[in-house]
Design a protein around this nucleic acid. Structure first.
Ligand code: FES
Ligand code: FES
Lengths: 148, 148
DNA sequence: ATAATAAAAGACCTTTTTATCTTTTATTAT
DNA sequence: ATAATAAAAGATAAAAAGGTCTTTTATTAT
């Protein structure tokens, strides 16, 4: 459904949302090791997210990645769209060229309602709201936090 | 979500269900060209489905692939399990190693109900029932141009 | 100014998935 | 029996996804 790239991007962006600020930028290396994702790969993804204005960065000492207020208003959907392209979530579950009610595939009516519902939820909630909820509900961004 | 392999396998098995019988076996070549999927690839998938007793085959002239009554009782879930492995549908949407309510990822509670419901429907309905519905509702099995 | 730092950029490598090709084996109609 | 047929099996190849490495550029603390 989602590429690994999108998954990493979502996790890392949510992590930035709660753990970084303009005054506390984080390096890819640190984020990657915390979330246990391959750091050069995450670096590439972050470059692209910066180009897409979903996260922000500055170079040099004390530099790193962070979210501006404006960045925080972006959505999980924006991340997916930026990395995988939005049709990754919209496309037919069985790979037919179009997913619509006119030429439904065998599983269309089973899958369609959920697709819409999930997509809606990914579109309605901002990264910031999402991250707040993750924090409050003690949801996890990596397996690492499970240990102890 | 599903591999292309699973998608082809599901479409082709449903096609078999309505268009073949013990007396009217179909060759991969014919099925592949009708469904517009790569025929050597489909041949490989069919071999595996035969080994998994989800479809049947005989060699030689008038030979080909078909479904027995028993084959028809298998489910879409069985096909997915046979080709992709079942955890492909069960795994965490964001790729964390376990998907459970104990250590939920940020999107777990959004995605979980969807996963369970779809999985249930893929498990409850037999291939035969599925195929019958596809026929009645004039749903489509062919993919003209595909993207995954 | 200089050295240190961290992202940007781009080349490169590996693995997995998708797809093809060739040979062998089983079956059947003649 | 024989030739034709169609799947089984297995080797191979192309494409996509995932992942790494090296060099360049911008920034900042000293
Ligand atoms: S047509 Fe296949 S999911 Fe909509
Ligand atoms: S933990 Fe991620 S979907 Fe369940």
């Amino acid at each position: 459904m989602l590429s690994r790239a999108s998954k990493y991007a979502i996790l890392a962006t949510l992590y930035l949302a709660t753990n970084s600020s303009k005054d506390k930028k984080l390096s890819v290396k640190d984020i990657a090791s915390t979330l246990e994702v391959p750091s050069p790969f995450l670096a590439k993804l972050f470059q692209q997210l910066v180009r897409g204005k979903i996260i922000s960065s500055t170079k040099g000492p004390t530099g790193g990645f962070f979210l501006t207020k404006k960045n925080g208003d972006k959505t999980v959907c924006d991340i997916i769209e930026n990395i995988d392209g939005l049709n990754r979530l919209n496309e037919c579950f069985l790979g037919l060229s179009e997913c619509d009610g006119l030429n439904p595939c065998p599983v269309h009516f089973i899958v369609e309602p959920f697709k819409n519902s999930i997509l809606g939820k990914f579109r309605d909630k901002s990264i910031l709201e999402f991250a707040k909820e993750v924090d409050e509900k003690k949801q996890v961004l990596t397996l690492k936090s499970l240990e102890s």
